[in-house]
Design a protein around this nucleic acid. Structure first.
Lengths: 206, 206
DNA sequence: AATTTATCACAGTGATCGCTACGTAATATC
DNA sequence: GATATTACGTAGCGATCACTGTGATAAATT
């Protein structure tokens, strides 16, 4: 009906649900409850499909979570190379901090970041899932670090600045913003924090 | 045997374990795995007692977690009014950030903070536990804020500084340090982040 | 029409969840 | 030693976990 837009012709009855839409609904449950805190019943209730359809479409809970993270990164929370590509690294990262402060408190979505504060401490059996999310955090910090290294070359950042520490600093503030958003902080409060962090970045401007 | 040091005489067979010692072992499991990630079997295995003894001594998993948090705050992770009481608020908070960076990476204990990044996103049934830990985070930030307000009165901090935002900023950095410690960061890396945050604090010195 | 695939409702898998009843062993007071 | 009190080990409670089998029906293709 809605899905399978003529790209791949298959025989048999087509799915009655839009795969992307039910994925988004599942992602919001994972976002709010975390991987372990979201049960299959929670997910199927929100998605409006049965467990059989879930497993037929997504394979497993862990695979569904992986796809939910992909959705989040593509739709909302990504720190992409493109987003960091504009001139003036310090302005780019200051805007990033402010944007994240606003995004983490957007009432249209669950509070906080789906990646920055996910799967911190979980049952041993789910350590692989935790490691996967940690890898996404590492990758984001690495992108920020690369952008800061470029900023030194381009003369935005002082040559004696430490891109590794500054990137970790930006990551830490974003993670803290996510914690406080989950604890109920408002947009203005978090933007004020982001601006303090941006001030510290500006201190390293060339 | 080891416990019940003559303080309260009771009839019947005395416990064969030291209550404080098994509580500390339980706390480390909670610390590493979180409230939901630590099962009763995980806990009793680490504590070296049976589930029967656990429930007789601590009442429930939630109550054991509460006592574990008390142990953590008393033994290690507390931001107490006393710790913040020394002169020069900015020096105090800078030292706090550095100390936390070191504590979060102490190989003698699980990585990160037991409170700063605990119970973020959990099953609905455990929302009360999550709220309890969030309250502890709020209380810590409130202590920092009070110390910063005093610093304005005492002339450490510039009168136009924002104690609320600065306290949230300190809290956010600590929370980010805890995330990155859990992700495997080392002491030196986190101390470098703490020092960047301390630099921003210093910018508001009177 | 025949085939294929997806839907649903229902049921149930073994495992684990937090938690507890029961009988016995050990230590107190009397 | 008698008795009361408490802890311990075994075993198991009902509930939920992620996940799957069955079977009938519906909707698409060939």
């Amino acid at each position: 009906m809605k899905n399978n837009q003529g790209l791949v012709r298959r025989r048999g009855r087509p799915p009655a649900f839009d795969r992307r839409e039910v994925l988004e609904r599942a992602a919001k449950i994972f976002w709010r409850r975390g991987y372990e805190g979201a049960s299959i019943v929670d997910l199927t209730d929100a998605m409006g499909i049965t467990a059989q359809s879930l497993y037929a479409a997504f394979g497993s809970k862990a695979q569904l979570y992986r796809e939910a993270l992909d959705w989040y990164r593509a739709a909302l929370g990504a720190i992409t190379p493109e987003a960091l590509d504009a001139p003036d690294a310090i302005a780019v990262l200051s805007a990033l901090l402010r944007d994240q402060a606003r995004a983490f408190t957007d009432p249209a979505y669950p509070p906080g970041c789906m990646i920055a504060t996910a799967a911190l401490g979980c049952a041993e059996e789910n350590d692989p899932v935790s490691a996967m999310v940690a890898d996404l955090r590492h990758a984001s910090v690495a992108l920020v670090r690369a952008r800061l290294e470029r900023a030194i070359v381009e003369g935005d950042l002082r040559p004696d600045a430490d891109p590794v520490a500054l990137a970790r600093f930006v990551g830490a503030v974003i993670q803290g913003l996510s914690v406080q958003a989950r604890d109920g902080a408002g947009a203005d409060e978090l933007v004020a924090v982001a601006e303090l962090a941006a001030m510290e970045l500006a201190r390293h401007r060339a």
